[in-house]
Structures are given as structure tokens and as C-alpha cells.
Design a protein around this nucleic acid. Structure first.
Lengths: 142, 142
DNA sequence: CTTGAACCTCTAGCAGCTGGAGGAGGTATC
DNA sequence: GATACCTCCTCCAGCTGCTAGAGGTTCAAG
């Protein structure tokens, strides 16, 4: 039986985060000691590891919820899980493409900085003059 | 003189966002009509365009605040602006590297999905078994 | 002068946590 | 059995960067 602190250590999660997952229903309510402290078993450890791994892969908590539901029904088709993973892959690829455009522009800004005074600073100038850039990469929400 | 709605249109910003920027001190308090509606001039248009452009490049509002301060003092050295841009570039590059690692792993997951039942689903299996992965890319905060 | 769009303020909410206050539980040692 | 000390508990507030809605006012066109 693991305390919440030990579970946190084993999975590289913060204690607060585990309680948060419980609160939003991503983790089950665990057993408690007489004094009211949470105690966890192997099942919970596995589940949390799954969640954390999926988070590291960038899945949203909602997507993870779906994946957990799927993995609770071993007889169902794999298609759904596959679709979720593909969607995630597409999103990652979009983000990479956007970031690469940003990188290009940032590199240009930095390269052209002559190290003079801010009045002539390319960095500031580029930011001021929107027309110099490729415009259509809408980061911001990324 | 621009209404907030027109300013929003010209800069591709939402009205609410402009008011939010004012609230956090990123945009100045503009003049008002007798009835209390905001009216903007060229200065504010330029400033907002600067902010939006920097946001599209992924700068945080804090970084933008610094850049705005710098560009208000044309005599100061360009070094600071350059440092901020370089920092941003580094961050973008790190994010790209992380996302590329994720892409690799997601591709592997998806490629190996045989389309069977969830009991044998590679997608779920990979998420369950942490040992199969390269571990050290800690997305999550990205 | 009337209409209707655009404006106003204020509050609350989103994701995904993180941190702190103030207090109780658990365990090792004396 | 007492003491010390760490971990645990709940509850609430805050972070970034907006976005949405309620409920009411102003402005410009016709």
C-alpha cells in the first residue's frame, strides 16, 4: 500500500496533481486509513502511470479519459484508440510546422541585430513592421 | 479616431482582448467620448500591432512588456531586445525538439496498430508500458 | 426620433495544474 | 507514554492568455 507521497515519487507526479486527478474523476477515490489518509495499490499506480505517459505525449485530459474508457473494455475495436492517437499526431505535426515558421523568423530577427541602439534595433523593428513577415502562421493559441 | 471594434478588426484582435490588455497595463488607457466609449489613435494602433505580432511569434506578455519598455527608450542598447529574442528562439527550438520526439513515438504507436481489439491495441499498450519509450522528453508543460 | 448595432462594466470560466494556510495523522526515538 | 518531525488532510487562491455572457448604455444612420 502506497501513500500518496510515494505514489507521487514513483510516477514523477506532484501530490497535488494526484488529488486534482481524483477531483476531476480521472483517478478513482482510493481507500483511506482510519485517520483519513489515502492508500493506493498497484491498479492505481498503473492507471496514474498511463495518465502521465499520455500527458507526456501531449494528450489532453479529455483524450486520456477516452483512452482509459477504451482500455477498460478489452473487447471493443481498436479503431477509437487509433483515431485518438492519429488526431494527436496531426496536432503535433501542425505545431511543429508552426514553430518552424516562427524559428525562421526569429532567426532572421536575431541575425540582423547589429548590436547598436534600440532606435535601430532590428528585433524591435521587425516586430513593429508587420508587413515584413509571412503573416499567416497564427501561433498564439499553440 | 477608431472605435475599439475597428481597432480590433484592423489588428485581428478580439474586442475583449484589447480591454484585457488595457486592464493588465499592456495597452494605455485611451481617450473616451462623452458617453464613455474608448477612442483610439495611430499610436495605439501601432502598439497593438506590435503586441499582436510579438504574440504570433510566441513571446509571452511579460516578454512583450519588456520589449515595449525597450522600444520606448531609443537611446538604450539593443542588447536587451536581442537577448529576449534569443531566449525566445531557444525556447522555440526546445519545443520543436520535444515535439519531434513525440512525433516519432506517436508515429510508432499508430503504425503498429493492427486494427484488432483493444485488448491487443498497440496504442494502449505503449501508453501502459512506460519502459518502451525514451522517457526523458518531458512535454506536459510545453 | 427611433432603431439596432456596437459599446460599457462586471463576473465567471477554460486547461492543467501549483502553492499556501492551518490543522490532523503517522512513525521513529527516547 | 511523550516528543519530535514529517507527511498527510481540506479548502481556497492563483497562474497564462484570453473568451463568453449578463444586463445595461451610447452612437450613428435613416
Amino acid at each position: 500500500m502506497l501513500t500518496i507521497g510515494n505514489l507521487a515519487k514513483k510516477t514523477g507526479t506532484k501530490v497535488q496533481t494526484i488529488r486534482y486527478y481524483e477531483q476531476i474523476g480521472l483517478m478513482p477515490e482510493p481507500g483511506r486509513t482510519a485517520g483519513g489518509q489515502r492508500r493506493y495499490g498497484e491498479d492505481e499506480l498503473d492507471r496514474l502511470a498511463f495518465v502521465r505517459h499520455a500527458r507526456q505525449l501531449g494528450f489532453t485530459l479529455e483524450a486520456i479519459r477516452e483512452l482509459l474508457d477504451l482500455s477498460d473494455e478489452p473487447d471493443r475495436s481498436c479503431e477509437n484508440a487509433d483515431a485518438i492517437a492519429r488526431r494527436q499526431l496531426r496536432q503535433v505535426e501542425q505545431r511543429i510546422a508552426r514553430l518552424e515558421a516562427l524559428r525562421t523568423e526569429l532567426k532572421r530577427m536575431v541575425r540582423e541585430c547589429a548590436g547598436g541602439q534600440t532606435a535601430d534595433c532590428r528585433v524591435l523593428e521587425v516586430l513593429r513592421d508587420h508587413s515584413e513577415c509571412l503573416t499567416d502562421h497564427d501561433e498564439i493559441g499553440a
